[in-house]
Design a protein around this nucleic acid. Structure first.
Lengths: 232, 232
DNA sequence: ACTAAACTGTGTAGCACATATACGGTTCAT
DNA sequence: ATGAACCGTATATGTGCTACACAGTTTAGT
C-alpha cells in the first residue's frame, strides 16, 4: 500500500479519496492533537466521508498512521552538498531527522513501533547509509550504526521536545512536568539517590540550547572509533 | 502513588486489594498478551473485583501501567561485586536492563513514554550513575550518558526481541515479519537503494548471537572518548 | 447497447475500553 | 453509639475500530 504497487483500476466510480488527502488530513490532526488525534472518524470527517470509506483505501488504522509518517518524512537532504567528509554529512542527516521530530512530535511515537519502511523512510536510510559507507562502514555494522543514530535522536527528542497535545491525553506528561517531577522526587529522597541528586544540582535535567549535540557527538565518536580501529 | 506516600488509613473496611496484587496481575497479563493485554477489566477480573474497584487504588490506567513497570524492574544489580572499573560495571548494568526487556518485552513500550520514575527505576538510575561517576562523569553529561545507554538498549531490543503478543494486535509486526518485509522491499527496489541492498546482502538485518554488543560497545566507546578527553 | 464485474462510499451494528457518578455496606475514632 | 472515612459495586456515557451487507457508478467485453 505504501508503495502504491497496485495500478489504479479503471472500473468503478472514480475515487473521491486519495492516499495523499488521507495522509495530509492525518498529519494535520496529529500535528494539532498528537498521535491520538488520528482517529478514523476524525480523518474521515476532515476529508468529508464516513469513517468506513477510509477502509477502501487503507487496510486499517495502523497503515494509515504509517502512511502519514512516511509522507511527513519527505525526501532526505542532499548530503553531496556537504563538504568535510562523512561525519559532517551524517550529522546534517541526524539534524534533519531532529527537525522533523521538532515540527511533528508525534513522529516520535511512530518511530518506536516496528513498522514496514515506506519509500521516503527508506530513502532517508539509504541517504544515511551512503554517508556511513563513505566513512568505511558496511554490512551489519553500517545498518546498526544507523539505527543507533536514529534511536539516539529519538531518545533525546522525547525528553527535550515540548509536544503540543502531550498532556492533553490523561496521564501523559509534558517534558516540563517531567523534569519538575524528577527534581521533586530527587529533592525528597536525596539520601537514597546521592549521585543523581548531585548531578541534578550541577545541571542535569535542565534545558539546554542544543539537546541533540551531546548524544550525537558521543555516538558518532563511538562510530569513529570503530572506523579508526578498522574493526569493520 | 508509586512512592506510597500516604499512610494506610485505619478507618473503613480493610482493602481486598493491594498495589502489589494489582501490579502482579498486570504483569502477568502483559507478559502473556503484550502491553495491550493490560486493561482495567482484565486486571480487575484477575484479582476478582469489578473494574471500577481499581480506581480506589490507582488514579487511572496510566498509573497502573507505571506501577507494573516499576515493579517488574525490581532492584538493580550490585555492581560493587564487578571488578575491572566502570566499564564492565556499566556493561553489566546495561545487560541487566536487557534481561528485563527480554523477559518482559512490553517494558519496551513503557520505556518510550515520558513517565515519573518509581523507586525501582530510580534505584536503577542511581546504580548506573554511580558506575559512570566512577568513570569521571558528572552533572548533565552523566545523566545524558545514562539515557543514551538505556535508549540504545531499547532500540536494539525492539528489533531483536521476539515479543509474544506482538502481531496479535492487528497491524503489529513480529521482528521476523519485519526483517522479512525489509528484505522483500530491498530486493524489489535494489536499484533505488544500492547501499542498503549491498549491506543486506552482506549480513545486515540478519539475526545475531548478541544483538546488544555492537551498540553498547559503540556508545561506551563514545563515552570513554569523552572521559579520556577530559571534556567533562 | 447491454450485461456483468469491479469498484465506490454508506448505514448499521457489535465489541472493547476507560472512566464519571451515585450508591450501599463496613470499619474505626470520638 | 454515631458519624466520618473508606471500600467495592452498578450503571451509564463516550469514544474508538472495524465487520458486514447494501446501493449506486463506471467500464470491459460481448
Amino acid at each position: 500500500m505504501l508503495w502504491q504497487t497496485t495500478p489504479p483500476s479503471t472500473r468503478g466510480p472514480k475515487a473521491a479519496l486519495t492516499l495523499d488527502r488521507l495522509a495530509s488530513a492525518a498529519i494535520t490532526l496529529a500535528d494539532a492533537h498528537g498521535l491520538a488525534g488520528i482517529s478514523m472518524s476524525r480523518v474521515a470527517e476532515r476529508v468529508g466521508v464516513t469513517p468506513m470509506a477510509l477502509y477502501r483505501h487503507v487496510p486499517g488504522k495502523t497503515e494509515l498512521v504509517d502512511l502519514a509518517f512516511d509522507t511527513v518524512m519527505g525526501a532526505p537532504p542532499d548530503l553531496d552538498a556537504i563538504s568535510g567528509g562523512w561525519r559532517p554529512r551524517i550529522e546534517r542527516w541526524a539534524r534533519g531527522l531532529w527537525m522533523i521530530a521538532t515540527e511533528h512530535p508525534w513522529t516520535l511515537d511512530v518511530l518506536t513501533r516496528l513498522r514496514l519502511f515506506g519509500p521516503n523512510e527508506l530513502a532517508w536510510m539509504e541517504c544515511g547509509a551512503r554517508a556511513l559507507a563513505e566513512g568505511g562502514l558496511s554490512g551489519a555494522p553500517l545498518v546498526d550504526a544507523l539505527m543507533l543514530i536514529v534511536g539516539q535522536m529519538r531518545t533525546v527528542a522525547q525528553y527535550a521536545i515540548v509536544a503540543p497535545g502531550a498532556g492533553a491525553t490523561k496521564g501523559a506528561l509534558t517534558s516540563k512536568q517531567w523534569t519538575a517531577g524528577i527534581s521533586a522526587v530527587l529533592d525528597e529522597h536525596a539520601a537514597l539517590f546521592p549521585t543523581l541528586a548531585v548531578a541534578t544540582a550541577s545541571g542535569a535535567f535542565a534545558p539546554v540550547d542544543d539537546p541533540l549535540a551531546f548524544g550525537l557527538d558521543t555516538v558518532l565518536g563511538g562510530i569513529e572509533l570503530l572506523v579508526g580501529k578498522r574493526v569493520v
